[in-house]
Nucleic acid binder design. Sequence first.
DNA 1: CCCGTGTCTGGAAGCGCTCCCATCCCCCGG
DNA 2: CCGGGGGATGGGAGCGCTTCCAGACACGGG
Lengths: 337, 337
Amino acid sequence: MAQDAPRRQPTLDQVAELAGVSRSVASRALNNAPHVSRLKREAVERAVRRLGYVPNSTARALATRQTGAAALVVSGEDPSIFADPFFAQVIVGASAALEEADLHLMLCLAASDRGRRRVEELLRSNGADGVMLMALREDDPLARMAEEATMPVVFGGRPVGAVPRWYVDVDNAGGAREATEYLISLGRTRVAALCGRLDTEAGRTRYRGYRDAMLAAGLDPFPPREGDFTESSGAAAMAALLTDRPDVDAVFAANDNMGVGALRVLRGAGRRVPDDVAVVGFDDLAVAQVSDPPLTTVHQPIQALGRETARMLAALVNGQNPTALILPTRLVVRASA
Amino acid sequence: MAQDAPRRQPTLDQVAELAGVSRSVASRALNNAPHVSRLKREAVERAVRRLGYVPNSTARALATRQTGAAALVVSGEDPSIFADPFFAQVIVGASAALEEADLHLMLCLAASDRGRRRVEELLRSNGADGVMLMALREDDPLARMAEEATMPVVFGGRPVGAVPRWYVDVDNAGGAREATEYLISLGRTRVAALCGRLDTEAGRTRYRGYRDAMLAAGLDPFPPREGDFTESSGAAAMAALLTDRPDVDAVFAANDNMGVGALRVLRGAGRRVPDDVAVVGFDDLAVAQVSDPPLTTVHQPIQALGRETARMLAALVNGQNPTALILPTRLVVRASA
DNA sequence: CCCGTGTCTGGAAGCGCTCCCATCCCCCGG
DNA sequence: CCGGGGGATGGGAGCGCTTCCAGACACGGG
């Protein structure tokens, strides 16, 4: 164990010495570079095995200016955000893609001031080869940091207001439109929208998709009722809606959590779902399947979001020039609409 | 953006030059080391600000032999394991504790061969200052790697069979015993156990706790019925149990997922819960609250597990000598028992 | 007045690796 | 037989930082 034995790992010099070659040759042999005779290459390999040599990644990083790591930075104020099923899926996708690209994954939470400082330092100290940035709010200080970063940055989900050069996003507008159109196709005419935070791009864009669909159908869009993507905010918005517009016959919720909250309030108010009020959510998380009734929702490919974001970053790190990507959504019809 | 401008970050030499001091002094000033006059210290600070200097973390790492990062390695064969609510919580806890210790979090999945190779390389190349190892199976190749590692290793959950020097675990035996005792205290005498994988320490130890409680009460323990901690395996085990021992009047499930699976099968078989059969789970994940009926379960402090594991690792990295830790569990009584 | 003590200071030697480049050698064509 | 092309080789200069150490200087007591 580290403590007791501060004896150091073998170095490349020792390998070279044991193999009877120079350090340059040993280095080339190790990296499968040309200009090494078969004989010496084998001698080096033997020495490596005998010594149990593994190149020191820090030294290599310093010399090559490549750390071999990519950071996934998540903004937000809740330190539990990694436990959010959404981000958990993103992590799964990103982790897989980075493994393929032989990059390590660093997870950074920019929730507290301290967290943000650490992220800024990481960005500026070249502690990683690139960064994936997610869940930026309006005026998020991370946006400025990203601009000043010296390494490639890919956004997972567009930041509010800006269209960065490299991002991967889900077709929020299209998904919202499809969901709303579906509700309209069921004959509903008083379709309300329960919005997520309007200082997030997803919150805004989903409302916009809803509004576009309503206008296109010649219906009056309801004004946005803002929540914060939580179950309780969905419930609160639904309750308020029921007071203001008791005639509502359909609800498009900005995500599944809010949709489930709406379901709960509707049930409490004695409205039948979907008979009296149809409800559609967004995300297609596990909760949508176990809710009562199961939630019709817009499925978004969350793992793919993580995967493609990571792939795009890996491409940038490798000097390629990928283009921004928008992933499709898909309506999943269940019992609630 | 990285691509277009390969212009390099300012270096410490440039700071020193601008401040009119030697690199040594600049370095000391930066690290708040002694032996720097007030005057020069301020000069350095000014230069740092003017240049927007941030120390290169790789170079620092090479010189200090400290990377400033800790790795969380999760074993297992399912690449989606990070999406498991259990690990998601562990990550939340670990992330918070590492932030306090000013260590970055690297997430490593040792699922595929490739993943394991990468982990091994990380362990041996000093790519991190320490490692947290979780979810090891019996004969897990990671165990050997850990022994040979030159950096501190902390186990989150004991590996099967061995008792490592440093670990944080949950009181699986105690929790299982308490759950079983509770079922017995309800007057149940034919209490069965639905086990998790018996090649994991948690699977084994929970069964042992169950058996101990049964024996202590003078009851016959049921033989273990092995599942793999999934809902469907719980359902399957419950179905088989119902065939073999239709007289069963209580079930201790190795975790909530399996407990929920058991609930489903019991409902399908027309058994009332808890009247005919009482069910207790383990974990106290969200699913236990929304199941029908809500699941009585053994709560384990998952975030704390992650937090304490990370703290212990941070202590080791800082040259301290912490001692292994077992976190308490707590029975949460709901409707299912 | 001298020397010991203590604070500052900068030179220089690493940390372990990559990679440029000068050198050397072998072989082939002229 | 000689010049030249090309692969193999090792020396050495970095990468950007920390840290050891020796020297410079100031101060106070004997």
